[in-house]
Write a protein that binds this DNA or RNA. Structure first.
Lengths: 232, 232
DNA sequence: TGTACATCAGTGAACGCGCGTTCACTGATGTAC
DNA sequence: TGTACATCAGTGAACGCGCGTTCACTGATGTAC
C-alpha cells in the first residue's frame, strides 16, 4: 500500500526529480540568476505551466535546489570524515579530509557552491527549511574536534574576555560539550575555510595564486592548528 | 583650454557621473542582477537609448561600477592605514585598522561588496581594467607587513617545502622584498579575512554568530599573528 | 467485474511585464572661415 | 562679429526576446459502489 503506491504517485516522484535534475543542470550551466521555469520546462518537453503541478513558484524550486546543495556538500563532508575515521585516522587527518572534501565538492559544483555560499540571490530569502541542511558541514567539523577534546584535554586557543559570553552562548547553541575557546575558534576557522574556497572559485586568485590545491591544504592545516588539533 | 573645456565636455562628465551614481543606487537597492540600463535611464528622466552615448553596453556600465567599487574599498583601506600610521601605530595596529576598514566598507556597501567579492555575475567576465584597482587592499596589507619586516627581522610563519616554489613566485610577482613564508601567509590571511566578511554579509552567521564585530576583531588579530606581526 | 464519478497531470493560449539594443530624427552647441 | 557647416546629446518608436503566472480545458488514472 505505502510501498507500491499507484502509478500516479510514482510518476509524481519521478517527474519532480527530473525537474530538479534539469534545474540543477541549468544552474551548473548558467548560474542561479538565469534559472527559469520556462527553460526547465522547455528542456523537459513540457509546457511551462505544467511545472506548477510540482512547484508552486520559481522560489520554491530554488529552495529545493538550495536544500539539495546543502545536503550534497554535507554528505560529501560526512563521507570523507567517515572514511578517514574507518582508516583509523587521528582527528587532525579527519579535519583535513573534511576540508579537502569541501573544496573538491565546490570545484565540482561551482554554481551550487555559489548558490549557497555566494552572494544571496536578489529578491529571494531562504526559508527555515534550509537551516538544518546548512549546518551539516559545520556539524561534521564540530564532531571531529569534539572527539579530539573528549579523548584528551588539549591546549586551548586564546579567547579574549570580551568574546567569552558570545563563545559560551554559541557553545550552548550548537557545540555542547566543547570549551568555549574552541567553539569560537571553530566558527572562525569554518568561515576562513570557505573564504579560501570562495576566493579560488570566484576568481580572486586569478593572476595571483597558481598552486591553489597546495595553498589550500597548507591553510587547512593551519586552521586545524587554530582550533587546537595537534600537529601529529 | 584643457581646464575650461566647453559646456559639452563638462556636461558629458557630469552626466556620466550621474549615470554611475544612479546605477550605484540601484545596485545598493536591488543587487547587480536587477541593474538595468532602462531603469537607470527612467530614474534619470532620460530615454534608455540616450545612455548609449555614455556606455556602449550594460556590461561596460557594470565594469565601471566594479572598478569604482574596488577603488572605493581600496581607498578606504589606504585611508585607515594612513591614519593609523599618522598616529604612530605599530604595524599590528595598522593591520587591524585595515581589516576593520574593510569590514566597515563591506557593511556600508553590501551590494558593491557582493559585486566584487561575491559570486561572479553570470555572463559577465571582468576585463583587465579591473586588475589594478582590485589589488589595492591587498597591496596595503603587503605594505604594512613589509615595513614590519624591514624594521626588524621577525619569526617567519611555517611554510611546507612543497609550497616554497609557489611562494617564491608570488613574492616576485607582487610582494618583492618579503620572505616567501610571509607572502604565502599573507595571501591566505587575505582570503580568510574576506571569508569572515562574506559569511557575515551573505547570511551564514544568521542564527549562529551574534557578536560579529567582536568575533571579527578577534579573528583579524589572529590573522596578524599568522603573518608574523608581533602581538605587541 | 463493471460502471459512474472524482482526481489530477499536462495543454495551450493569454496577460502583462521588463529587458538590451538599433535607428532615423531634431535641435542645440561648437568650429572654421 | 557673423554666417555655414559639423558635431553630438537626446528623442521616440520599434524589434525581438524571455520571463512568471493564471486559467479554462482535456483526457488519462484512480476510487467507490
Amino acid at each position: 500500500m505505502s510501498t507500491v503506491r499507484g502509478a500516479r504517485e510514482r510518476a509524481r516522484i519521478e517527474v519532480t526529480a527530473a525537474i530538479k535534475d534539469e534545474a540543477r543542470r541549468m544552474l551548473a550551466a548558467e548560474g542561479a540568476a538565469k534559472l527559469s521555469l520556462r527553460a526547465v520546462a522547455r528542456e523537459l518537453g513540457m509546457v511551462s505551466s505544467a511545472l506548477y503541478r510540482y512547484f508552486p513558484s520559481r522560489d520554491e524550486l530554488l529552495t529545493a535546489l538550495i536544500v539539495d546543495a546543502y545536503d550534497s556538500v554535507g554528505a560529501a563532508a560526512e563521507r570523507a570524515e567517515a572514511a578517514a575515521r574507518a582508516d583509523g585516522a587521528p582527528p587532525r587527518a579527519r579535519w583535513l579530509a573534511i576540508c579537502e572534501a569541501f573544496r573538491s565538492w565546490a570545484l565540482a559544483h561551482p554554481h551550487e557552491y555559489a548558490l549557497i555560499y555566494g552572494s544571496p540571490v536578489p529578491g529571494y530569502s531562504a526559508p527555515l527549511d534550509t537551516v538544518g541542511p546548512a549546518s551539516r558541514v559545520g556539524n561534521t567539523l564540530i564532531a571531529v574536534v569534539r572527539t579530539a577534546y573528549e579523548g584528551r584535554g588539549l591546549a586551548l586557543p586564546p579567547l579574549p574576555d570580551s568574546l567569552r559570553p558570545e563563545a559560551v552562548r554559541m557553545t550552548a547553541d550548537f557545540a555542547e560539550g566543547l570549551p568555549p575557546e574552541v567553539t569560537a575558534a571553530l566558527v572562525v576557522a569554518w568561515a576562513q575555510l570557505a573564504g579560501m574556497v570562495s576566493f579560488e572559485l570566484f576568481g580572486q586568485f586569478n593572476r595571483v595564486v597558481e598552486d591553489r590545491a597546495g595553498l589550500f591544504t597548507h591553510a587547512a592545516g593551519q586552521l586545524a592548528q587554530g582550533v587546537g588539533l595537534p600537529a601529529v
